[in-house]
Structures are given as C-alpha cells and as structure tokens.
C-alpha cells in the first residue's frame, strides 16, 4: 500500500514538474477530483459492469466446472475435446468479439459469451489439475472400502479439488471484469467500457483513468469476494493452501 502511494506521489510530482498537458497524462490529484465530481454519472456505468461481470463469471464458472467434470470422468471426451480446448485459447478474444456481435447482435448474449470464454479456461484447467492431484493412497483406500466410481468422485476427488477450483475462480474473477469491459467496447448503452470509449473520443484522459482505476478496484473486490467464499468452503486447512499429502 505504502509503495503504491509512493508511486502515485512520483507520478503527481513528475507531471507537475514536466508540465505535461492534462489531456496527455493527468495527475493523480486531477483524476481523483474528476472521480468525485462525476461520481453520479459514472456510478450507473460501474453498476452495469458489475452486473455483467458477475453474471458472466457465474455462467463461466458453471460451464467450466461442468466441462472439467465431463473431461475428467469420461476419457473419450477428454481425448476428443482437450486438444481443441487448448487450441481455442490461442484465438484472441478481441478477434472473436466482433464475430460474436455479427452472429448474435448487440444484446446481452454475445457479451456473456465473451466473458464466459475468458473465465472458462482457467477454471477448467485448475479443476482438472485438482482432480488429478488426488493422492493415489486415498484413491486406493476408497477402492478397498468399496466405494463406487461416483462415490470416489463426489466424496473424494471433488472435495479434494476445492482449493484448486478456487485458485481457478480467483483468476477467472479478475478476467471477468476485463472481459466485461471488452464486451462493452463493442456496443452497449451503459458500462465502464462505454464510459471509456466516450471519454477517449472526447480526449477526457482524466476520465479514462477514472475508468482504469475503477476496473482495478472491481477486480480486486471480486478477488477478495472469492477469497472469502474460499474460506467458507475449504475446510480443514487455511485458505490458499492446497491439501498436501499427509
């Protein structure tokens, strides 16, 4: 925190000393002033983005978990889909986005698809890793006590993967804000992304920075929200610790 304050001070001082025009790089004090002044007009945009990001993240998490479970439990599906999944990650979302608009119009659907796409991958990979890390001795024990395949999964592998799943969701949560902003650039009535494009085209650089700081804050907020959920769900060990072999 102290270091961030220090960086902001340097920024403030250098802008003032070098007399950089504020449409090029506004000083932090100016950005802060703008943020408080335009709070009333900006706030609805923030709320719209929060809604979009949360909805997209929720759908992304649900899709990611379902796909991870399917890929883990059915080997033939894994062999079929896993390479395609990896390949799909090489397509930049920015390229996909205009296509999605062409196909699905300017409504909510293409935006949600964009956010889903960015959230989906980290969750699938983290979840599958979590399943795979289940220690062999625990699996053997479950076999010896006569657990069925689905009991082995739901009572052992699934809860064992919780810490891994939450690391995936934490990454996805920060991506979801970015995904929402990108989706809004492409056409929306409200949202931080819209506010950003409008400010940019009218050279209100201070407002662009207000938007940037809002995005950072939102991402952090979501991250800590997931951390909180993690502490509620992952029992027996502190959060941020994967279950180690005992």
């Amino acid at each position: 925190m102290l270091f961030i304050a220090f960086l902001l001070c340097i920024w403030e001082i250098s802008v003032r000393l070098a007399e950089i025009p504020h449409w090029l790089l506004p000083a932090p004090s100016r950005i802060f002033k703008e943020a408080t002044q335009s709070y009333d007009t900006f706030f609805p945009h923030v709320m719209a983005t929060i809604q979009l990001a949360l909805l997209g993240l929720t759908i992304g998490v649900l899709c990611g978990l379902s796909v991870a479970i399917l890929l883990h439990r059915f080997v033939f599906i894994r062999e079929l889909l896993y390479p395609i999944l990896i390949m799909s990650q090489n397509i930049p979302v920015l390229v996909l986005a205009p296509l999605l608009i062409i196909w699905f119009g300017f409504g909510l659907l293409p935006k949600l698809i964009i956010i889903c796409l960015v959230c989906f991958f980290p969750i699938v990979i983290a979840t599958m890793d979590g399943f795979r890390q289940t220690p062999a001795e625990l699996k053997h024990y479950f076999q010896m006590i006569g657990a069925s395949k689905s009991q082995l999964f739901w009572k052992l592998e699934w809860p064992y993967a919780y810490p891994a799943i939450f690391s995936g969701v934490k990454i996805a949560a920060t991506y979801s804000v970015m995904g929402a902003v990108i989706a809004e650039w492409l056409g929306a009535k409200k949202g931080i992304g819209v506010y950003m494009t409008l400010s940019q085209s009218s050279f209100r650089t201070d407002r662009v920075f207000v938007a940037i700081f809002a995005i950072i804050l939102l991402s952090l907020l979501l991250f800590y929200l997931i951390r909180l959920l993690e502490q509620l769900f992952v029992k027996g060990r502190g959060a941020d610790v994967t279950y180690s072999k005992h």
């Binding site: 809860p159 064992y160 992952v234 029992k235 027996g236 060990r237 005992h246």
Partner: peptide
C-alpha cells in the same frame, strides 16, 4: 497411511 480426509 491414516488416509483421513482433510476437509472432514
């Protein structure tokens, strides 16, 4: 190994 489930 004890094989206790750490989350239970």
């Amino acid at each position: 190994q004890p094989c206790l489930l750490p989350w239970r």
